[in-house]
């Protein structure tokens, strides 16, 4: 596909869906977004290990929340 050519309907549909999905994600509460970041960290770690790279960190959200409650 050359630059400037119109995208097929099916691709445009997927892109529109993704744009709507991103908008929905942006409107989630910050607490839920933090949980999603930790999920992304888990995927990134798994991908690093699977491809023989050093593992990347994953936050322990449960521990963070527990400690926050304990110190309040």
């Amino acid at each position: 596909m050359r630059s400037g050519e119109e995208l097929p309907e099916v691709v445009r549909h997927v892109l529109e869906f993704k744009a709507a999905r991103r908008k929905a994600l942006a409107n989630l509460p910050p607490e839920e977004k933090l949980r999603l970041i930790v999920e992304m960290q888990k995927w990134a770690r798994a991908a690093h290990i699977a491809t023989g790279r050093p593992p990347t960190p994953v936050w322990n959200l449960a521990m963070l929340m527990r400690r926050a409650q304990e110190s309040s």
Partner: peptide, 11 residues
């Protein structure tokens, strides 16, 4: 960014 946009990966 979690207060304004979709979440982005950070460590």
């Amino acid at each position: 960014l979690i207060f304004y946009t979709e979440p982005v990966l950070t460590y």
